[in-house]
Design a protein around this nucleic acid. Structure first.
Length: 771
DNA sequence: ATAGGGTTAG
């Protein structure tokens, strides 16, 4: 009976399915199809495309696959409409392989049309396979001679954009013009975005200006393009023009503008635009929040960051709409924001609130970076190693490695640094990223191995300003001033741009090597020859340079000549030099300035107290001490650590907590006695306590760097260098003692203090007294 | 059918 009405009946079923499909009622489509099937009606080549489309829309590969099976039985897959719909269905369900299989099978029947090619190209493009998309495009036009239409262009231009395929992009642009498809707004938008992503904003602007119909997308692509390449003024101008011309702005426009500000570190401006956006009634989404949070982080606007955090909590639904259900962009950004605002513990709590499965590379990276910069480098390295211990295969990327290397730099953790270097070399797919190599140079330099830093530099296929600056800085801190200046000259000859940081490390290189005249010369030539005007930090460096050399009055006149209000660093530099050279009055003056600037940290008081002690003005020492007590300021304890085979061992002043403490003290006093025999006289001034001389000798014996050295002597193999790091400046007496000790022990002593490196060897120190 | 985002160095 059914057979009798078959043709008419299928027509009615198809109409019903189509009716539901056109009105977006996907589930109804599927249930009608099922009903039809269960009543033994045979679908035809109109039925299948409707059903496949519906299955694709709800990503139901199960319905799709069973309909597919049915279409095979009935032989309808040889129909081009059915085939195209099938390809699209599989692609929308995320089964690229099946889509491709169907597509390839269609060729056997010879039923490809432009839509088939468009569909498969779009599938690759959408599922993040731009290379495959372009490959299919080239087969379509070169092998099979299909002529691209509007939709082909719209599908193939974005892959060009994401791959930065400029020349193909230009060809497509040309084709769009000759085939008169350029008036299509979608094509135009694609081209604008493609040029913008290829950093060719002038080309993008040309296309944009010639577009007869522009929509929000066209404007957005331009705003985003300018802001991404840092042509920030143009981005904002365009954004403002949009508002003038009453072009409807949407969340993309606003987000692009916000991110533009954030990327330039203009966090408050980003916040301002965000406010404007809210008041104009456009709802922010994830991308907006991410952009504005990065703005908050850049200016450490904790309160605003918290506001955004609250917003995110209050509007969870708005933020899920974008489909990125399974990534934690907003949470990662919040972790980063809290860390950059120095709330490392809050950041850590948020990090811990993510389940191990939810943490991605960025979560780990921002947390490690947060510790490394604002908390505790040891915790950074601990977290870095935990990353390898967890079950989920989250591996570090270049960002993570850079953060971890930064932590090694600040701790002088050479061994871990080397391990990370080895990891990088083992796991590199291409060449080591520039950023990572730059970190490696810095790491080796700050861990005392400038030679290896140089090797890294020599082996780099590409270098930038930071690469050169890192090397100059490294040689500078090791006291190779001439080498540092030579590299600086080379850098300039190569045409690299100089900035404030480069000049600063050059000045410090001069300072650490006592090259006063050269330092003065470079400083005086900064504006005229190098195009960098000196900032407060350059003045501070000059004060340091002159002050180390004992030219304290010259240092003071440098301060007086400053075009800006001298910030605390400058006075600290002066005070520190006054302490070294025993200039009490000038030191008191500097300390007074520091108090006026409300910058009274422990360093200031300690320096002043030491200055008085040096001059044996014990009453003043006592006064400063009680003042510190009164203000609740505690002297930061000196602490030194030494790298051994089994790990790093840390010592505080008078530390007796080490299991081998007895041995350590014994070795120390033995060696002190031995160097006394060859002329060492304890410089009791450095004990800085109002006690008699014999007792002072004991206090000197307990300095953390001496304990670290004694432990180093006990545990380091013959001939190997002993590497010690101290959190403060090395004490003068320890310096003298180390110099003597280097004559009688079979180790080079490499000591890093808060200011520079000292290499002690054969009774000499590389600092030559400039410290 | 087209557009927007985050983490790294001296």
């Amino acid at each position: 009976m059914q057979d009798h009405f078959a043709d008419d009946g299928v027509y009615h079923w198809n109409s019903l399915i189509r009716f539901h499909g056109d009105n977006g009622r996907v589930t109804e489509v599927v249930s009608v199809f099922r009903l039809m099937h269960s009543l033994s009606w045979a679908p035809d080549n109109y039925t299948f495309p409707f059903v496949f489309k519906a299955c694709g829309e709800i990503s139901s590969s199960r319905c799709g696959a069973s309909a597919h099976a049915l279409s095979l039985v009935t032989g309808f897959n040889s129909n081009v409409f059915v085939g195209n719909a099938l390809v699209a269905m599989y692609a929308r369900c995320g089964f690229l392989g099946d889509a491709r299989k169907v597509f390839d099978e269609m060729s056997v029947e010879g039923v490809w049309d432009v839509v088939s090619w468009n569909t498969i190209i779009a599938s690759y493009a959408k599922l993040g396979k731009p290379k495959m998309a372009l490959e299919m495009f080239s087969r379509m036009s070169n092998e099979f001679g299909f002529r691209p239409d509007d939709i082909t262009l719209v599908n193939v231009i974005p892959p060009c954009a994401s791959l930065g395929a400029r020349s193909l992009g230009k060809q497509l642009h040309g084709f769009a013009i000759t085939s008169e498809r350029i008036q299509n707004t979608f094509v135009g938008n694609g081209l604008v975005d493609m040029y913008a992503k290829c950093w060719m904003m002038d080309e993008a602007n040309k296309v944009f200006s010639n577009m007869s119909v522009k929509d929000v997308v066209s404007w957005n692509a331009m705003v985003a393009g300018y802001s991404q390449i840092g042509r920030f003024d143009d981005a904002v101008k365009l954004f403002e023009k949009m508002q003038e011309e009453k072009i409807k702005t949407d969340v993309v426009t606003w987000s692009a503008a916000i991110s533009g500000y954030a990327q330039r570190g203009l966090g408050y401006e980003a916040l301002g635009v965000c406010r404007q956006m809210l008041s104009s009634g456009v709802k922010p989404n994830e991308v907006t929040l991410i952009s504005v949070l990065s703005g908050c982080a850049s200016v450490q606007a904790l309160m605003h960051g918290k506001e955004i955090h609250c917003y995110a909590i209050k509007h969870p639904i708005d933020l899920c709409k974008n489909g990125h259900g399974d990534d934690n962009m907003v949470i990662n950004q919040l972790i980063d924001m809290y860390a950059k605002c120095k709330k490392v513990d809050i950041a850590r709590a948020m990090f811990d609130s993510l389940s191990p499965k939810e943490r991605d590379v960025v979560s780990w990276t921002v947390m490690i970076g947060g510790y490394s910069h604002h908390g505790d480098a040891n915790k950074a390295l601990k977290l870095f190693s935990e990353m390898f211990e967890q079950d989920y295969q989250t591996r570090p990327n270049a960002f993570t490695i850079s953060c971890a290397l930064g932590a090694c730099s600040s701790l002088a953790a050479l061994r871990i640094g080397k391990q990370i270097h080895a990891y990088v070399l083992r796991n590199q797919q291409n060449e080591v990223p520039l950023f990572v190599s730059n970190c490696l140079i810095d790491m080796y330099a700050k861990c005392g191995d400038i030679g290896v830093g140089r090797l890294v530099f020599d082996n780099m296929p590409k270098r930038n300003e930071v690469t050169w600056t890192s090397l100059i800085s490294g040689y500078g801190m090791h006291g190779y001033g001439e080498v540092a200046l030579g590299i600086f000259d080379e850098m300039r000859k190569m045409g690299f741009e100089l900035d404030g940081v480069t000049l600063l490390v050059v000045l410090y290189a001069c300072s650490h090597s006592g090259m006063i005249d050269q330092g003065m010369e470079y400083f005086n030539r900064m504006k005229t020859d190098f195009g960098v005007s000196p900032g407060p930090e350059h003045y501070a460096c000059m004060v340091d340079l002159l002050g180390r050399a004992g030219q304290l009055n010259a240092a003071l006149s440098h301060i007086e000549e400053m075009p800006m209000e001298p910030p605390p660093v400058v006075w600290v530099a002066l005070l520190s030099c006054c302490r070294t050279h025993g200039k009490v009055e000038l030191g008191e003056y500097a300390a007074k300035k520091l108090t006026e600037l409300a910058s009274n940290n422990d360093g200031t008081f300690t320096l002043l107290s030491n200055l008085y002690a040096n001059a044996r003005r014990w009453k003043d020492v006592a006064r400063i001490r009680s003042l510190m007590k009164h203000k609740g300021i505690q002297k930061r304890p000196g602490c030194s650590w030494v790298e051994g085979i089994k790990g790093t061992t840390t010592f505080f002043v008078g530390d007796k907590t080490h299991p081998r403490a007895k041995e350590i003290y014994q070795v120390l006093s033995e060696y002190i006695q031995r160097i006394k025999d060859i002329g060492y006289v304890p410089e009791t001034d450095f004990a800085l306590h109002d006690v008699d001389n014999e007792e002072k000798g004991d206090l000197l014996l307990e300095h953390s760097e001496k304990l670290a050295l004694a432990f180093g002597i006990l545990t380091t193999p013959q001939g190997a260098a002993i590497r010690i790091t101290k959190n403060l400046r090395v004490c003068g007496d320890c310096h003298t003692a180390f110099t003597y000790l280097s004559r009688i022990i079979d180790h080079e002593i490499i000591l890093r203090d808060s200011s520079r490196f000292h290499h002690f060897k054969n009774g000499m120190c590389s600092c030559k007294g400039y410290w």
